[in-house]
Simulated scan of single mutants.
Amino acid sequence: MLIQIAHLYATACLTVVFFQVALIGGAPLGAYTQGGQHKGRLPPRNRVIAALSIPVLLAQALAILSAAGFPGLGWPRCTGWAALAMALVTMLLNQITPSRRERALWGPITIVMAALAGYVMVVSRGA
């Protein structure tokens, strides 16, 4: 069951990656990200920020999969804790963002993501 929970977390991370790709491609979703400062398409500088988040999200997904014991990864356990820390920071930021739209969309999603990562890290400790 631990691997399945880690898979859910990794799938959520990939979903966020696809959202970031849409932002980079010019999708008019600025109200749902980066504090909602840009109602339509993100300006180029903010698209770079979206692009920089992609490797972070992929690393988080792999770190949690590794912590759950996914075959062939074997990352140091501290990477899972770092992924959980990032998930918690992201959750907090999405709860306090001035953008109602961002808070409404990403608030619940990031709570679930942090809970999934936390579950994997706590339960895998005894595994």
Rank of each mutant, 00 (worst) to 15 (best):
P55N: 01
S53G: 05
M91E: 01
G36H: 04
N94W: 00
L58F: 08
A61R: 08
H38N: 10
P108E: 11
G72L: 00
P28D: 01
K39I: 12
A61T: 07
G69S: 08
W81C: 03
T97S: 12
T33N: 13
L62C: 13
A83Q: 00
P108N: 10
A85P: 04
L23R: 06
V56N: 06
G40D: 10
Q37S: 10
T90Q: 05
G26W: 04
R100Q: 12
A27Y: 02
V48K: 07
A67E: 06
A22K: 03
L105W: 15
A22E: 06
C78A: 14
R100K: 12
L88D: 08
A63V: 00
L65D: 01
F70I: 05
P44L: 09
R41W: 04
A104T: 13
A27L: 03
R45P: 02
A87Y: 00
L52V: 11
P44E: 03
S99D: 02
P71G: 03
A51D: 09
Q34C: 02
P108D: 10
W75I: 02
M86A: 14
S99Y: 05
L62N: 00
A61K: 10
N46A: 15
Q20I: 06
R77P: 04
A82P: 04
S53A: 14
L57E: 08
G107H: 01
S53T: 12
